[in-house]
């Protein structure tokens, strides 16, 4: 269990003064991950919001070595860096024990960078892949990704007169990564900072590739006030829209059981991307379908925990 009292003593490896929007969940996630990574760490990131708001020359918010190559290449570049590290250690040209963390958004992870991620994980490169999932292509101006939830308005799944937002449910990236037999996989969100920090510690200690999926509310893309980021992050967990769980050594552990499972509407209503569902005809059915999907996935997760659980 991480304690704020201890964490606040750790040096900030992600400097303030970067260019993220006010209330950016992604910047919070990066900061929390690095607070948990206090041994030497080398970062890898794809093109995307994080790269743009942290690394516009001649400025850098990174206090760790960081490499950015292209949009779909976080995992493949990480593979090269990690391989170089193994070579240099083998050759006696490097002594430090270094960990590797790749940060990718959902576009760079679920979609365009998916093949590279699958390949790198299959080859067992030892690195932590953190997906900062804000459920859309926010850097290019809010387009749908395969992580965008059912019914959400984006600029390529707009709330139109005939079609009310995205017509497909999101991809279950966690199960896909678990199917790759990663050394450790976990899902969390920034409101659960202690959970997040603990999971980063476990992921970095794992003997092989590990995966952390972090829900990061995006005020611009989701259409909410910047000071509601943490609240929405908590509501995502309390509605079971975003279960907080981990897959550790073949066991499922649910790390947050909401005291009262809230209807998914509670999470949706404060967000502009779902507004049409509460103002236009036919919206209720879309909300009901999303609720059905959330319930089904939550029930499935409970079953997995029962079958492959810690207790």
């Amino acid at each position: 269990m991480a304690r704020l009292k201890d964490l606040c003593k750790n040096p900030e490896l992600f400097s303030s003064g970067h260019r993220a929007c006010a209330g950016c969940g992604e910047a919070l996630a990066v900061r929390q991950v690095l607070l948990a990574a206090q041994q030497p760490v080398v970062g890898i990131m794809p093109t995307g919001c994080t790269e743009i708001f942290s690394s516009i020359y001649p400025h850098s918010a990174w206090q760790i070595p960081m490499i950015h190559t292209a949009f779909e290449t976080a995992a493949s570049t990480a593979a090269g860096v990690e391989t170089a590290y193994r070579f240099l250690r083998k050759a006696g040209r490097m002594k430090e024990d270094v960990k590797f963390i790749a940060f990718g958004g959902d576009g760079g992870t679920y979609d365009i960078g998916f093949q590279a991620l699958s390949g790198a994980v299959e080859r067992r490169h030892k690195f932590l892949y953190v997906c900062t999932d804000n459920e859309g292509y926010m850097n290019t101006g809010i387009q749908r990704s395969s992580a965008t939830p059912y019914g959400a308005h984006t600029t390529t799944s707009p709330a139109g007169k005939v079609v009310p937002g995205k017509r497909q449910h999101r991809k279950d990236i966690m199960e896909i990564m678990i199917a790759h037999e990663v050394a450790y996989a976990a899902q969390t969100t920034i409101a659960f900072w202690s959970d997040l920090v603990t999971k980063v510690g476990k992921a970095l200690a794992a003997d092989g590739p590990s995966f952390l999926n972090v829900l990061v509310p995006c005020p611009l893309g989701w259409g909410h006030a910047g000071d509601e980021t943490v609240k929405l992050s908590r509501l995502a967990a309390d509605t079971c829209f975003w279960p907080i769980y981990e897959w550790d050594s073949g066991r499922y552990v649910i790390n947050h059981q909401p005291r009262e499972k809230l209807p998914v509407e509670e999470f949706m209503k404060p967000q502009g991307r779902f507004r049409h569902l509460f103002t236009q005809e036919g919206g209720a059915e879309v909300v009901a379908e999303l609720q059905r999907h959330v319930d089904a996935k939550w029930a499935l997760l409970q079953k997995r925990r029962e079958c492959f659980g810690a207790d």
């Binding site: 690394s55 990174w62 070595p65 960081m66 950015h68 190559t69």
Partner: peptide, 12 residues
């Protein structure tokens, strides 16, 4: 990998 001298490779 020179962790004592962190650099940023590939800025915008």
């Amino acid at each position: 990998l020179d962790v004592a001298r962190p650099i940023l490779v590939g800025p915008a």
